[in-house]
Simulated scan of single mutants.
Amino acid sequence: MGRPFAEVIGDPVAHSRSPMIHKAWLADLGIDGDYGAARVTPSQLADYLAGRRADPDWRGCNVTLPHKQAVLPLLDHVDPNARRIGAVNCVYRGAQGLHGCNSDVGGVAAALDCVDLRGGRAALIGAGGAARAALDYLAGREVDRIALLVRDPAKAEDLRSAVAGARVELWPMDRCDGAMSGARLLINASPMGMEGAPAMPPSLLACVAAHAPGTTLFDMVYNPLETGFLAAGRANGAAVVDGLAMLIGQARAAFQLFFGRPPPEDAEARIRALLTT
């Protein structure tokens, strides 16, 4: 056998910081392995995974846009939490073949566990795999109401039943003012504002600015680190949490699944310094 390796797959994927994180931890722990990035289009996904199955050195992959939901039927086993959420962001070799799990929920927890949310309201932008993970986390934090801002509410009806214990409302983007009214937490779980993706529309940023005072803003986008969403909140009195908190949090679980050892204890502080200097 050769050198063990893992990777991140998506389309696009050039923006990903995951290789920097995992390579740093491999070096810190003296593990002779590697971690890369591969652009895989939706039409290539099934064949790509089939090819990786046959490579004994491949330990698995992180899964990013747009594959977090499409990858489920290609796996041999999906963890119950990921099945419930309806999205997988980590694929690894297990006793039943290729296993899928969702470490995004742990990443959201790393970003938001310190925020008081019980009985409050939250507004969430997006309807993809990252949004599903955030919904699952928020339901576990006993949030009273979650307003979900989506492009087409009719196509997102299944998200109403994706979580138990929280009231999920679907709002179109052009009614952001009503969706954000009274929210204690605003989350961007969409790719808007990400490098190479469309910017967040001025009308949506205006809503964010209007409802920012006294709230917490969390952006899952980490490249760039200071997005228009976070800037609008910061300038109007919100506490802001950037996307690195989630990225590093979810990477911890994935690294151990791929390489059999946890990252160093000071992982977050050192990786944040690496990625921001």
Rank of each mutant, 00 (worst) to 15 (best):
N62H: 09
E157K: 14
G60F: 08
M180Q: 11
A70P: 04
I146Y: 10
D158W: 08
H67F: 01
W171Y: 15
A111H: 09
I125F: 06
A156N: 12
A139Y: 06
C61Y: 03
G60K: 01
K68C: 02
R121V: 07
G128C: 02
E169I: 08
P80M: 05
D174Q: 12
A70K: 00
V63G: 02
T64D: 00
L72R: 06
D136G: 13
K68A: 01
D76E: 09
D79R: 15
P172Y: 08
G140N: 08
L170H: 05
D158V: 05
A154R: 07
G178L: 14
V168I: 07
K155H: 01
V150A: 12
A162N: 11
G107L: 03
A156Y: 04
R118Q: 15
R167C: 13
L98C: 12
R59D: 05
N81T: 12
A164P: 02
G182Y: 10
R141F: 05
V150R: 02
G165E: 14
G140R: 13
D174I: 03
D55I: 08
P80F: 12
A123C: 13
R151K: 11
K155V: 03
Q69D: 03
G165F: 09
R53Y: 09
A164T: 04
E169W: 01
R132G: 05
N81H: 07
D144Q: 11
K68W: 00
I146C: 09
N102S: 04
R160C: 14
Y137E: 12
A154K: 07
L135S: 06
P66W: 05
A130R: 10
D152V: 07
A109W: 00
A166D: 06
L74A: 11
D113R: 15
C90Y: 05
A179W: 08
L112G: 10
I125G: 00
D104A: 01
L112I: 05
P56I: 06
G86T: 12
I125T: 12
V143R: 13
D152A: 06
W171I: 10
D174R: 07
A122G: 08
V150Y: 08
A87C: 01
R59F: 05
G106W: 02
D158I: 05
V168L: 08
C101P: 02
D136K: 11
A156R: 06
A110Q: 13
G107Q: 07
A166I: 14
N102V: 03
A179S: 14
D136M: 08
H67K: 01
A134Y: 04
D158Y: 07
L117Y: 04
G86R: 03
T64I: 05
A131W: 10
A87G: 06
P73N: 04
P172K: 01
